[in-house]
C-alpha cells in the first residue's frame, strides 16, 4: 500500500498549513483575551460569578469535553488512514468524528434549552453575558468545522476523490482547533469561579 508523506519539519509548513495555523493563533488569542477579560470582570463581582457558575451543569461540560476529545482522536486516526491511502477507514473514522461533533451540539442544545427556560439569558448578568458569547462563538466554530468535514466526506464519496493530504490536514487542524478552544473554555467558564 502506497504511503503519502508530507515533510512537516519546515517553518512554512506546520501540519495543516501556515495559513490555517495563523487562523488558529488568531482564534486562540481572541478566545484567550475574552477569557482573561471574564476573569478580570469576576474580580468586581466575585459573588455573582461564583453563584452563576454554580448554575451551570459542569457534568454536561465534562461530557462535552469527552465528546470533543474522542472526536479529535477519530480525526487523527482518519488522517493517518488517509496517509496510508486507506479510504475506507478514512471515511469510517471521519463519520465517527462528525458523530462526536453532532453529539456535542445536541448536548449543548439541551444545556442552552435549560438555561433559556430558567431565564439565564445573555442579559441576566455579566457572567451569563460571557457564558453565552463565548460558548455560542465556539458552537459556531463547531458547526463550521462539521460543514468542512462533511464537504471533505462528500469528496471521498465521489468516484474520483479530489481531496489532497494538505486539504484533509487543514480540515483536521480546524477541527482540532475547536477542541483546543473548548479545552480553554471549559475550565474557566464551568469550574474555576
Amino acid at each position: 500500500m502506497e504511503t503519502i508523506t508530507v515533510n512537516k519539519n519546515k517553518l512554512y509548513y506546520p501540519p495543516g498549513g501556515i495559513l490555517l495555523w495563523i487562523i488558529i493563533f488568531l482564534e486562540l488569542f481572541t478566545f484567550g483575551m475574552a477569557l482573561i477579560a471574564m476573569v478580570f470582570y469576576s474580580k468586581y463581582e466575585p459573588e455573582v460569578f461564583h453563584n452563576s457558575r454554580l448554575l451551570l451543569n459542569s457534568t454536561f461540560g465534562a461530557v462535552n469535553t469527552v465528546f470533543l476529545l474522542t472526536s479529535g482522536f477519530f480525526m487523527a486516526i482518519s488522517v493517518k488512514s488517509f496517509k496510508k491511502n486507506n479510504i475506507k477507514k478514512t471515511t469510517y473514522f471521519l463519520r465517527l468524528t462528525m458523530f462526536g461533533g453532532i453529539l456535542f451540539l445536541v448536548l449543548k442544545s439541551v444545556e442552552y434549552y435549560f438555561k433559556i427556560e430558567s431565564g439565564y439569558t445573555i442579559g441576566y448578568n455579566t457572567f451569563f453575558s460571557f457564558y453565552w458569547m463565548l460558548t455560542l462563538f465556539h458552537v459556531i466554530h463547531v458547526i463550521v468545522g462539521l460543514v468542512i468535514l462533511f464537504n471533505i466526506y462528500i469528496g471521498f464519496k465521489q468516484q474520483k476523490s479530489s481531496n489532497s493530504v494538505e486539504d484533509f490536514e487543514s480540515s483536521a487542524a480546524f477541527w482540532h482547533m475547536c477542541d483546543l478552544i473548548w479545552l480553554l473554555l471549559f475550565p474557566v467558564v464551568y469550574l474555576i469561579f
Binding site: 512537516k8 482540532h176 483546543l180
Partner: peptide, 11 residues
C-alpha cells in the same frame, strides 16, 4: 491535543 492529534510534535 496540539502535539499528538495535530502532529505538532513533528513540526
Amino acid at each position: 491535543v496540539s502535539f499528538y492529534f495535530m502532529e505538532l510534535k513533528k513540526a
